[in-house]
């Protein structure tokens, strides 16, 4: 068995490039959230650091790095330090399967796939990784040794476990139609009808909405942001975290948001597919990022508009409405897959 140096080099370069692209997207998601929220709320938002405040993410990063590292005396030190990493690393590991575009022909390089790697269980891999994130939150809630954190950790574990069921069940319809778990194959399956053969238009609108709601709950965002409900639990599981450790949680949350947006785009909105993408493959990443940013905007928009659910209402909604609806959608999709396709 010989190691293919070219293959290894290609993968490494792709990882570095994608990692940086995603980091920049995340940094500017935070910035965009603050600016868009400001527009919604009739105020200015950060506009002092750099032109229009564009350097704000870097200023924030520097601030986080230079803040004092505090570990509460009563905290379980190792778990306390471990938790932010457990929350962040799996969230970042999902990015290797983001399909940014189809196969493009670049000058000097030749034909490459705009994805770090695609393997046949890509979706399962993403779900496995995002589910690991809950451990970070639970460990943080426990290790902080604070009552607010504990309640926040409890809430989030209950919430994420409940909504993961509906989340996983809601995508099965799309998988039945695509016939694959590989994210790239799922996107390719939606290429018909001049690049508009998206699953949301063809038989999966219900699945899409269930997925969207569960994904928002899964990423702990308003209206499902109970784990960090600031008016009840101060800051929930990360009450005791400060400096860079807090920033890691923060980044993890946004990385999860991005992953959820990417999944929604890939599974239901046709990934990089769109009109004329076959003729101009470089349009692919534009379509893809455009759709992802639409979902991120949706997250911010919801945050600017909606109040928060209560714990018991959230559980009722998840188990009594979303889960049966997702099951119903599977039956529906199975019938569609049998007779219509």
């Amino acid at each position: 068995m010989s190691i293919d140096v070219g293959f290894l080099l290609e993968a490494l370069i792709k990882i570095v490039v994608v990692f940086h692209i995603v980091l920049i997207i995340l940094a500017y998601t935070v910035y965009a959230e603050r600016r868009v929220l400001a527009v919604i709320q009739n105020r200015l938002g950060p506009n002092r650091v750099g032109p229009q405040g564009l350097l704000q993410p870097f200023a924030d990063l520097l601030k986080f790095i230079f803040k004092e590292e505090l570990v509460p005396l009563a905290a379980n030190k190792w778990l306390y330090l471990l938790a932010p990493l457990v929350a962040l690393v799996p969230a970042f590991m999902t990015m290797i399967v983001y399909p940014f575009g189809g196969t493009v022909n670049l000058p000097w390089v030749g034909e490459i796939d705009l994805v770090v790697t695609h393997f046949n269980v890509g979706l399962l891999y993403v779900f496995a990784m995002t589910s690991l994130g809950v451990y970070g939150i639970v460990i943080a809630g426990w290790a902080s040794n604070s009552k607010y954190s504990l309640l926040g950790g409890l809430r989030s574990s209950a919430q994420m476990v409940s909504y993961e069921l509906a989340l996983s069940l809601s995508v099965i319809g799309a998988l039945l139609q695509a016939g694959s778990l590989d994210l790239v194959e799922i996107v390719r399956a939606q290429g018909g009808f001049f690049g508009l053969g998206w699953h949301i238009f063809w038989f999966q609108p219900l699945g899409f909405f269930i997925f969207l709601i569960s994904a928002i709950a899964e990423t702990n965002r308003i209206p499902f942001d109970l784990p960090e409900a600031e008016t009840e639990l101060v800051a929930g599981f990360h009450t005791e975290y400060s400096a860079m450790k807090f920033a890691l949680f923060f980044l993890g949350e946004y990385a999860n948001m991005l992953t959820a947006s990417v999944l929604a785009t890939v599974l239901f909105l046709g990934g990089w597919q769109g009109p004329f993408v076959d003729q101009f493959p470089l349009l692919g990443p534009v379509y893809f990022l455009g759709k992802v940013f639409f979902f991120i905007f949706l997250y911010i928009w919801l945050r600017g508009t909606l109040p928060r659910f209560r714990y018991d209402q959230l559980m009722n909604f998840g188990w009594k409405f979303l889960l049966p609806a997702a099951l119903f959608n599977i039956v529906l999709s199975a019938i569609v897959a049998l007779f219509a396709l």
Partner: peptide, 16 residues
């Protein structure tokens, strides 16, 4: 009150 229940935008509108 809106903010307590999670609707943060109400706060800014009210204060304007």
């Amino acid at each position: 009150h809106g903010m307590d229940i999670g609707a943060m935008t109400a706060f800014f509108y009210a204060f304007t």
